[in-house]
Design a protein around this nucleic acid. Structure first.
Lengths: 342, 342
DNA sequence: ATGAAAGCGCTAACAC
DNA sequence: GTGTTAGCGCTTTCAT
């Protein structure tokens, strides 16, 4: 089957390609009759404009990129949904890149976004990301960037995040008010701003309550094999026998903590109380049900995308570089932190 | 900052754009020295070729599309990972479209894939999909298509699926051998080939065992509000008080079944045994742990992508239109089907 | 080894 | 209201 281009239509109808182009775009210059003829033939032949020719000409790709650490975490799945919902409304296409929490891959992804491949990018940074040169390159190319959920402190761009510091406080309070004397905080990154904020909130409450503040933070190495996470958690627990509460900064860590506890006969919540930052759908049916601090993942994605489009559509003056939208998470109390259960 | 194009480089170096282009592509026609000069300057100026100009010229987009019913299901998250892993190795970009189980959206997505936007498409069909005109349009345009996980029967294209019929049998046997006399099968689509195969396997075992085969299949309407799923499951259970086992054809249905049971005080596995087609990470820590038939999601995605690339790279003769790769799922027995538990 | 030139399919300024 | 034309940035003959 031969390719149908504007030329085909023009030849077929005996008019110029310019006329066809204008007719297709419903230009006021073209007579109703000609438009009709063009549209009819286009439909008949299943004409679809070549997107790349148009992109090249207009210097606009009608696509955005989403760069994520991973897609297996429920948060990111929901965020993608939010992003897609607005992209589709804007008739945009979305390119997905996964950094797998790896800085080099993130850089690579950003690189792909330049030179006009996309009109804008949404990113949740990898846990290794501290440098900002790749973001600056984008800025130089005038490609709008907005952070969602996981941002980076020393680079200025709009961001849609949640109230991590407060949630850190809430987590600590939840554990302490349920009797924990020795709660700890586990995460997978020492540099991720989101983790640090959560930990800061957490530790501030311990301090306020007069609880010991040393050795409260544990970084789980998740760059190697999956298996190791449980081993590491188990070791932490063994070396800190007095630990009676855990705040898991990531969904995955909470799941692994359950597995360790099940295996080692550690009773949640009696021996150990657990609270997790997570949007896990199964939280309520876990054994025991898991107390979570749940992020508005869909809305974070949606709002980030909306801001991005505002920038793309050159309503740029509306969006300051330091614009920050904070969508609060909510605490959902369940059994894993309940002081009266065994 | 001005855009850096081949022209910039050429002018700067005092050579022609043709030479620059060839040097960048490491053509044998160009002297080592010139190549070096070009490469150096390119690096210095951060030159990135315009992907769309190149696509337009070469009639190749270096991107593939992945069309999914949704991304919240763990299976699809894993599959995306598999797909990405091969796309990245091939230096391809991946466009994501979500059908949200809606046929119109799927058609729309497929439409976007035509006219050269992508070099190939991977799809897991929506549960509403029975028509095939949109696929045929793709085929006419010579855009390779491969199905993964959820295929469609009356359209011939390579597919990577799992052994659904056998798994339906396995599910039935698992329930029956653990004492179920009245198991039912729940899914969300009456037309989805994958569900039907599972059900066929399931019912064949009931028949063989001499168990009643009428009213064994229940279709849950999942097109409206999320809430309703539990209501529907509850109603099924209330109207069929003798039901003592459920095969959930989808992860989500299993989760909702748990919720109903928790709420109504129905004890799993004592009152009701449950087995689910699912890759849920939390299956082992649910209350009770969930027996699953687990799909090799990552590998399904990966293999589908590999086949797609074989087709894109015109090793097309290698891939027949009716090529079917079946990657078996595995049964993981856990407490939700255990006959001796309460 | 290098360059001139045509053209991928489309848009838009400018004629007529 | 319609057509001519000049590119967008790149690749690829074909000359030289």
């Amino acid at each position: 089957m031969n390719k149908i281009t504007i030329k085909t239509l023009a030849k077929e109808l005996g008019i110029s390609i310019a006329t066809v182009s204008k007719a297709l775009r419903d230009s006021y210059e073209i007579s109703a009759e000609t438009k009709q003829r063009v549209l009819n033939l286009a439909k008949e032949l299943n004409y679809m404009p070549n997107p790349y020719a148009s992109s090249l000409r207009k210097q606009k790709s009608k696509t955005i990129a989403v760069i994520l650490p991973e897609v297996a975490d429920n948060f990111f799945s929901l965020a993608i949904n939010g992003i897609q919902s607005v992209a589709i409304a804007k008739n945009y296409h979305v390119l997905i890149y996964l950094s797998h929490e790896n800085f080099e891959m993130e850089k690579e992804a950003i690189l792909h976004c330049s030179s006009g491949r996309v009109d804008g990018v949404l990113i949740s940074v990898s846990r290794e990301t501290t440098a900002i040169a790749h973001f600056e390159k984008l800025k130089k190319e005038n490609i709008p960037l907005v952070f969602f959920d996981r941002d980076i402190e020393n680079f200025s761009a709009p961001k849609v995040i949640t109230n991590d510091y407060e949630c850190g406080e809430i987590a600590a309070k939840q554990l302490i008010s349920n009797g924990c004397k020795n709660p700890i905080f586990i995460s997978t990154s020492a540099s991720l701003s989101i983790s640090n904020k959560r930990f800061s909130g957490f530790i501030s409450v311990l301090a306020k309550m007069g609880l010991p503040v040393n050795n409260r933070q544990y970084i789980i190495d998740n760059d190697n094999k999956e298996k190791l996470i449980t081993t590491q958690i188990q070791q932490i627990l063994e070396k800190n026998l007095h630990t009676d509460g855990i705040v898991a900064s990531e969904e995955k860590l909470a799941i692994h903590t359950y597995q360790v506890c099940h295996k080692r006969g550690i009773k949640i919540p009696k021996d150990l109380k657990l609270i997790a930052f997570s949007t896990l759908e199964t939280a309520s049916i876990l054994n025991p049900s898991l107390t979570t601090i749940s992020q508005p993942a869909f809305d974070i994605g949606k709002n980030a995308a909306e801001i991005l489009f505002a920038m793309i559509e050159k309503k740029r003056h509306i969006v300051q570089d330091d614009y920050t939208l904070i969508l609060p998470s909510i605490l959902i109390e369940r059994d894993s932190t309940n002081k009266t259960l065994k």
